[in-house]
Write a protein that binds this DNA or RNA. Structure first.
Length: 270
DNA sequence: AGAACCACCTGGCAGC
DNA sequence: TGCTGCCAGGTGGTTC
């Protein structure tokens, strides 16, 4: 479910409700996510106040005075804010009860997500080797070009690796490549500077537009405020195999790269 | 070092 | 209706 726009939308939706609140109670219903939820979290967080809420790649960071709670939504995770009690679903694994009575509840059917603790002053190993944030000025065409020159694999694989740039998942890799006129199977080291400039611009544009529209939704995605997103209706190529390209009407093709589906227009993308 | 593949999990859907 | 097989938004770890 969550690509970067969903994570960003979740962050923005939750921040007004959590910032400055202190934690009354932490409930771990199922600690068995991708990595175990630290058993000491309830003890660590009880009585502590959320000082800042930020995002790094697809990790949500809730900073406290003595450390940071990291939450990753994996493939199927969602965070919701409950203003009144609701019985927990079988996939509701983790929950914070706030001083004002609100609850932030993590639901994650596939349990690929994670809830982790980072002690103040340290950098969690999972955050230590991440590439540039796609929406910040530190992600540049020059940087992508340099990395691409050293990579013989397909450009789409490189984009999704989180080494050069983070937060570009399967949907937005496909969409940004379409908008750049670059085929997903093009070897990274064959891209010119101009193509890298276009690609960086379109990654930023695609993500920015998606965030502006409230994040895309597929099936079970629910925003933190409970409303459905709607960006999925606007995909140019993702999930559109056999349907006409919106630009030239050529049927969209699908192929598999690294066990992920790639969609592209054989006419618009070379 | 770089590249390819595997693993973790449940639910939804197509096809029989 | 029910079973089987396949697919899915992520990404760290292992193996070659």
């Amino acid at each position: 479910m969550p690509e970067l726009p969903e994570v960003e939308t979740t962050l923005r939706g939750l921040t007004p409700y959590l910032l400055g609140q202190s934690i009354v109670e932490v409930t771990i219903r199922n600690a068995h996510l991708r990595w175990p939820i630290p058993a000491e979290l309830p003890e660590l967080l009880r009585g502590k106040t959320v000082q800042t809420m930020t995002r790094r790649a697809k990790y949500l960071l809730f900073k406290f005075e003595h450390g940071t709670l990291l939450i990753h939504l994996g493939m199927s995770g969602s965070l919701r804010l409950l203003t009144e009690y609701q019985p927990a679903d079988k996939h509701d694994h983790f929950e914070l009860l706030l001083q004002n009575g609100n609850r932030m509840r993590l639901r994650d059917p596939r349990r690929f997500g994670s809830v982790l603790w980072q002690v103040e002053g340290a950098t969690h190993p999972l955050l230590s080797r991440l590439g540039a944030e796609p929406l910040q000025a530190t992600f540049t065409a020059e940087q992508l070009y340099q990395a691409a020159q050293r990579c013989r694999r397909a450009i789409k694989i490189l984009l999704m690796e989180n080494k050069v740039v983070v937060g570009v998942g399967n949907i937005y890799a496909n969409e940004a490549l379409f908008r750049s006129g670059i085929a997903p199977f093009c070897p990274a080291n064959q891209l010119g500077v101009a193509q890298c400039e276009k690609l960086v611009r379109e990654i930023k544009n695609t993500l920015t537009e998606a965030i502006a529209q409230g994040g895309s939704s597929l099936r079970d995605y629910v925003n933190s405020d409970g409303k459905q997103g709607y960006f999925q209706q606007n995909y140019s190529v993702y999930g559109r195999e056999g349907q006409p390209c919106r630009r030239c009407a050529t049927p969209i093709k699908m192929l598999r790269q690294g066990q992920r589906a790639s969609f592209y227009c054989p006419h618009c993308q070379q």
